[in-house]
Structure formats: structure tokens, C-alpha cells
Amino acid sequence: MMTVDFTLNGKRVSAMVEADDSLYKMLRGLGISSVKCGCETTNCGLCTVHMDGKAVLSCSVPAPRAAGHDIWTLEGMGRLAKALGDCLADEGAEQCGFCAPGLMMNVLALAKENPNATDEEADAYLAGNLCRCSGYMSQRRAVRRFLDGVVSGEWEKEEVQA
């Protein structure tokens, strides 16, 4: 067993892990319920989190590699995540919801990297986020509306109002 010190959703935390544990396993152990596991082959995207501002598959990051790094999960993403959640809910796009947190983390990464993404660019960026319920079309509509809102500053206005 070893200790890993890192920042989780803005707070300094310390976790006891085994050397071959994944970041996914460590986060679940810390009570982070938003990260899910849907495969063992890095295909599904359910376990997506942000590491130093970039989307990563937490199943594929060794836990010790998080030492000293900045990890964010959906639990810590605040109002922008809420706005994205509202866009998805308005389309009924969450369905079973199991893939939603991973998808949302990747959409939030996309919003930072390329908020002007076209539908095609967004689909390509999000291709690693599998969903079996929705058939993706409702998610595409929701992501469009969310990115448009990011560009127009609509979600910031909401923050001011709140």
C-alpha cells in the first residue's frame, strides 16, 4: 500500500492505494460516485475525469500518477455542469444516466478547448463516450445548445442572476 496526495475537486486529499490501482478505483474509494466503469478495454468513456484540465480515462491512469496533480470529477464542476445537465435533461438525453457523467466531463473539456465546435467536430471529440440508450441524437442536440450557450455567454448570465 502507498499514499497518494493530490487535489480532488479543489481540495487536497490523501488516499491509500495499491501500486497497481487505477485512478478510477481510487476515486470510487474516496466516495466519488459519478465515475463509472463500463468496460475493461478503454472503449466506453464512462470513467472520464479531468486531470490538470484535460479529459482522461480514469481507468487507464495509474492511481500513483495522480500524486501532486489536479483531478476534477463531475461532483466539482459547478454551474457549467449544471447548465449542461439542464440541456441534456431538456432533451431527455440522459435516459439511464449511466454514461452521463463521463460524457459531461468530456463535453466540458470540449467547451474549454473548442467551444465553436461544429456538430461533426463535437461528435468526433466525443466518439469515445458510448451510450446505448439514446442513439446520440438527443445528446447531439443538447451539446449543440450547450456549446452555443458557452459561446454566447448564456450560462455566465445565469450565474450572475443566481
Partner: peptide, 12 residues
């Protein structure tokens, strides 16, 4: 909206 949307979309 689905009644459970809020919980599902915040990783509860």
C-alpha cells in the same frame, strides 16, 4: 423532464 434527471446528471 425525467423525475430522476437531476440525480442522474450530477453523478449522485
Amino acid at each position: 423532464r425525467k423525475k430522476d434527471a437531476g440525480a442522474l446528471l450530477s453523478g449522485k
